[in-house]
């Protein structure tokens, strides 16, 4: 009687499972999956608005994809990569150093909590407002030039925005400022998750702090470093707000700060759906590969955690026996 009832219940519970995950999947279907299919479909059509005339949709096969490759797509991909890497290298280096310092018990840092709060702050700031701020601060008559001139460092204002190096450096600097604190705190948590006995053993064996970092810490935080790298690449691929606002969408000077998403935004704003579609598909393919890498990483993490738990349980069982 009792088992019968619970069996009946488990059947009805199954329905509840579907019901609870329904909103997610319906929303995803409507706002992501259908749009994705539609985006892919548009990529095979000639479909744009020129003035008041709407051209298409005419099926053109892979013409949009070819046209994109012949246009400046690769240049914009290069821009995106350069500005991403110029921000990412200092970001990961500084973050690793800070994380090592914050977790090293032989270093006492006064105001640790204060520093943590301050370095994380830029991560929460509206990127577009931050870019607008940098635009005014680094403009020809802006405060940065005013300060440098009054200090006698320079005699003429530096025109950051009209040189490729200047504009790209500002964007990389903003990306660095917005993300180094976040990465430092993530890495710090990873280091704090390491078994302290390992550090003590290395210390007893005569390792100095550099050696401990190189041979104990680094290998153990490699998974999270990999995760940081991949998610940062995905973030870099989406780079938009900062260069868009800083250069007012022009990618000045001479489109050397134009990113892939700025390019996409341009096609979307001018209603060139065919080209926007093909560009989206290129971006989707790259993102899908990166998503798959993240998926594998998470799976490995889960598998490792499960193994660890199993080992622990086995050990406990043995001890009890």
């Amino acid at each position: 009687m009792k088992s019968n009832r619970s069996k009946n219940k488990s059947v009805s519970y199954e329905r509840w499972g579907y019901l609870f995950i329904l909103p997610f999947f319906v929303t995803f279907l409507i706002f992501s999956l259908i749009p994705l299919v539609d985006t892919i479909r548009y990529s095979f059509y000639e479909f744009y608005t020129s003035g008041l005339i709407e051209v298409g949709p005419n099926f053109v096969g892979l013409d949009n994809y070819k046209a994109l490759l012949e246009s400046d797509l690769l240049k914009y991909a290069g821009n995106t990569f350069i500005m991403w890497i110029a921000g990412f290298i200092p970001q990961i280096v500084i973050a690793m150093i800070l994380a090592a310092w914050f977790t090293d018990h032989r270093i006492r840092i006064h105001g640790l909590q204060f520093f943590k709060v301050v370095i994380y702050l830029p991560n929460l700031i509206m990127a577009s407002a931050f870019a607008m701020l940098f635009f005014t601060l680094f403009s020809d008559a802006g405060p940065v030039n005013q300060i440098l001139m009054s200090m006698g460092v320079i005699s003429h204002p530096i025109r950051f925005m009209i040189s490729t190096v200047g504009a790209r450096s500002l964007i990389a600097l903003m990306n660095f400022l917005m993300w180094f604190g976040n990465t430092a705190i993530m890495l710090m948590a990873a280091i704090m998750g390491i078994n302290p006995a390992l550090f003590e053993a290395a210390e007893l064996d005569g390792c100095n702090h550099a050696k401990i970092f190189r041979y104990v810490t680094l290998p153990l935080i490699r998974p999270i470093l990999g995760y940081t790298l991949i998610t940062s690449i995905i973030g870099g691929l989406q780079m938009f707000d900062v260069p868009q606002i800083l250069t007012n969408g022009a990618g000045a000077p001479d489109r050397t700060t134009m990113t892939l998403i700025m390019f996409l935004n341009k096609h979307l704003a001018s209603k060139n759906y065919g080209m926007a579609g093909a560009l989206s598909v290129y971006l989707f393919v790259i993102s899908a590969i990166l998503c798959f890498i993240v998926f594998k990483m998470m799976q490995d993490e889960d598998a490792a955690a499960a193994k660890k738990a199993e080992k622990k349980a086995k050990k406990q069982r043995k001890e009890r026996a």
């Binding site: 992501s32 259908i34 749009p35 994705l36 299919v37 539609d38 985006t39 548009y42 991949i230 998610t231 995905i234 691929l237 989406q238 938009f240 998403i261 996409l264 979307l268 759906y273 926007a276 579609g277 989206s280 598909v281 971006l283 989707f284 993102s287 899908a288 990166l290 998503c291 993240v294």
Partner: peptide, 10 residues
């Protein structure tokens, strides 16, 4: 970690 921008057109 799929970016939302890739489906923006649709």
């Amino acid at each position: 970690v799929m970016p939302t921008q890739v489906t923006a057109l649709g």
